[in-house]
């Protein structure tokens, strides 16, 4: 039994969050968190652990890239996907590298493509998580060795 993966969907239009939710709930077993406010979504990220975030570009409170950058600060290992309207494409692409995004999708999106991007995003996040815990393990092993070495040196002084 694996842990249920969580996808966060953020768009100021409830139409979009609801459509994405309908699709993901019908076709996948992911837990779906939908937000129409970027601020509320950032608050939720303080407590929720999320594997993939899909966010709209054009939102009133803050644009999708600002939101996804802020999301990186609290959840650096989460894969972040930008959903853009055709008209925003150029701006969006320019900002994608800057914000270290995983992917961008154009509206209207294709559901199969969306599912693939989310699935790969989840895999990517879990690899990062694994890498992160391995690195942490290595670091603590290193610290431990360091301690052992120091104690040995003291013993033989």
């Amino acid at each position: 039994m694996t842990m249920q993966n969580t996808v966060m969907v953020v768009d100021d239009e409830v139409m979009v969050t609801a459509a994405l939710r309908s699709f993901l709930e019908l076709e996948t077993s992911y837990r779906v968190l939908g937000y129409t406010s970027a601020r509320a979504a950032l608050d939720a990220l303080q407590t929720e652990s999320v594997d993939v975030i899909v966010a709209d570009f054009m939102m009133p409170e803050m644009d999708g890239i600002t939101f996804l950058k802020a999301a990186r600060d609290s959840r650096p290992l989460t894969s972040r996907v930008l959903l853009t309207g055709y008209a925003d494409k150029e701006n969006a692409i320019r900002a994608i590298n800057d914000a270290g995004l995983y992917y961008y999708l154009e509206k209207p999106w294709n559901n199969d493509h969306l599912r693939l991007v989310i699935r790969n995003g989840i895999e990517r996040s879990s690899l990062f998580n694994e890498l992160d815990s391995r690195v942490a393990a290595l670091e603590s092993a290193h610290m431990e060795l360091h301690g052992v070495r120091r104690r040995l040196l003291q013993a033989f002084r």
Binding site: E13, M15, V16, A18, A19, L20, S22, F23, G85, Y86, A87, K107, P108, W109, N111
Partner: peptide
């Protein structure tokens, strides 16, 4: 594009 995207997906 917003309503179109929603209807298209739905």
């Amino acid at each position: 594009n917003t309503p179109l995207g929603a209807i298209n997906s739905n």
